[in-house]
Nucleic acid binder design. Structure first.
Lengths: 355, 355
DNA sequence: ATGAAAGCGCTAACAT
DNA sequence: ATGTTAGCGCTTTCAT
């Protein structure tokens, strides 16, 4: 005994065949019409009209099965509370939209396992992957490459240079900050670092120390701010407590520098007058009047442009060399650090220092 | 004349057939093994072993073609510079991961056309869509629903209630802020609003005005801060310039309130002493010592939980009623507004006011 | 418990 | 310029 009524089905999106039927052509004609193939004006017109009527949109899922392209780029990112990353996401998103790719976002937790992460990243046949600021980024990168998915690292690179990546020239930046502070007559330096295994933190830290050492001054004190606001607050307070408190603190990123500025005030020291604090990133908040943070600006736009271009090339089959591109930034001078001579102003009224 | 050498092909990811062959079973067996179907212990073991060796991961793209589920949830969002949204993204991302969905992020521009947006959203057969803070959200919502894709609005709802959504109870929140300010003996009120067609801004604004009116006090001045930092700065400065300058400013969100606080200082008025400023959202930055912003906290966690649960139910076929769920928040008392009587402290040391 | 076969919506050779 | 055909990698009846 069969059911009398046909099964009620949810209205399904129209397919290319539906359009073909309505327009009186074959599926292939429809496909060609939507992909810039050869179709007569006449047919093309009928096809688009039918498509419009039926509200047809090609299923990108089905398409990706045959083209072997998903149109999806994965972006793995942490520390969304650090304003730098939302800014990065906006830039990436802009570029990707221009290039007709969609952005699949993976907000990675602090300590995640590698495997589940990989299942997520590799299960979808993402066309490419951007690894920004994840602590397991370097490991992820090698795994993904084994699976033949183009990967590129952003702002946090593989220290051994075994994966393609883009960063600001951290060494140059940190060295310039050190020279700036030296020129400002500071003598007792300290560094608030990020998490231990962060390449970014290590590079900036190392270069800063070298420059200070080269000037013949004592080794800067170092405390980890763990890349968090609270961590940096604690770190700064700890640095300020000692009798040999520093007269200049370099925070490895702005997120922590902003915490440091406030911590210093809490401790009764006004940055720029009683103590100098310099950050790295030049996030939007750094320019806020409440902070006026002196900081080294990362060229975010250029970094994302370079990264996406290279990634797309790799997707198009051009092999991506394991090269780390290091782009130069600029030291933006505001008010949280004593100003040495040589500060200049650009056309837009921004003060900067080139040593 | 044919080419002699076969075309060199990039190593392709292994397929279910590869695994089946290696394990000596059929494709269907592999599929069942990976989907909790009926397979003998023996076969299952061989299948997983083969899969491990070949590094096989089922193609979710192909799967979605047959199951008609993509496992993708679209999230459309603007104003990433407003720290509220990165926070929201983190919460959404957490929940989605738990539920085995991936997040496709659409950072919508200020003024985008509807159509390209729709092509993007509907082309991928997204299982569901979250519309947060887009100015065209209400229009997008109706369009998507016509295409049978579950949609839910977040923090910015359809004023006519023709689409499901979640917000904080904006009316209750704004009214409470007004009562708080009234209790603090303020008399000349002003509002810094968001963009004109934002439901959120309108709701908060309307309720605030009603409460002030009900108290028999003159209509608050209103200036648009356009949801931007610069806009809010200008708006505040403008308000402060007049001879009849307000003694209390309600900013429709924290992002603008933070600008207002700094603008007030620029104008020589210290918030909490010379003028009172209250925000809405309770973003992380509001708690920073530099601001200590008094603000109405949105229950972000509950909002996203509610939203995702409902969205997933809709995806599972349970029809989603066009209901706007309004969750209660809490007025967090910090230092930017004069404190009336009745401020209490919770277990975590947070000061709040319930009127 | 297992396999064969059909089909999801599309694209891409290959004919014509 | 257009249609036919054969998959893409998977799930899902339907037999066995």
């Amino acid at each position: 005994m069969k059911p009398v009524a046909p099964q009620i089905r949810i209205a399904r999106p129209p397919t290319g065949s539906d359009v073909a039927r309505a327009a009186g052509v074959s599926k292939s004609a429809v496909s060609r019409a939507f992909n810039g193939g050869l179709v007569s004006e006449d047919a093309r017109a009928r096809i688009f009209e039918a498509a419009r009527l039926l509200k047809y949109r090609p299923s990108l899922t089905a398409r990706s099965l045959t083209t072997n392209r998903s149109g999806l780029i994965g972006v793995a990112i942490t520390h969304l509370d650090n304003q730098f990353y939302p800014e990065v996401i906006e830039h990436i998103s802009d570029r990707l939209r221009e290039e007709k790719y969609r952005l699949v976002l993976f907000v990675t937790q602090g300590a995640t396992d590698l495997e589940p992460m990989l299942d997520e990243l590799l299960g979808y046949r993402l066309d490419g992957i951007v690894l920004a600021s994840s602590s397991l980024a370097a490991q992820l990168a090698t795994e993904c490459r084994e699976s033949n998915v183009p990967v590129i690292m952003f702002n946090n690179i593989d220290p051994q240079g075994r994966a393609p990546g883009v960063t600001t020239d951290n060494a140059a930046g940190a060295a310039q900050i050190a020279r700036f502070l030296l020129a400002g007559d500071h003598r007792r330096f300290a560094i608030v670092t990020g998490i231990a295994d962060s390449s970014t933190s290590m590079e900036r830290c190392a270069s800063f120390r070298e420059t200070i050492a080269a000037a013949g001054l004592p080794e800067p004190a170092r405390v980890s701010g763990e890349y968090s606001f609270e961590g940096a607050t604690r770190a700064t307070l700890e640095l300020l407590r000692g009798k040999d408190a520093p007269d200049a603190i370099f925070c490895v990123n702005d997120h922590m520098a902003l915490a440091a500025v406030q911590a210093a005030r809490t401790a009764g020291r006004e940055p720029g007058r009683d103590i100098s604090i310099v950050g790295f990133d030049n996030v939007a908040i750094a320019a806020w009047p409440a902070f006026a943070l002196t900081t080294y600006a990362q060229p975010v736009r250029q970094m994302t442009d370079n990264m996406i271009s290279r990634l797309l090339q790799a997707i198009d089959g051009k092999p991506l060399p394991d090269e780390t591109v290091r782009l130069p930034g600029r030291l933006i001078v505001r008010a949280t650090a004593r100003r040495p001579a040589g500060v200049r102003t650009d056309e837009e009224g921004v003060d900067y220092w080139e040593g």
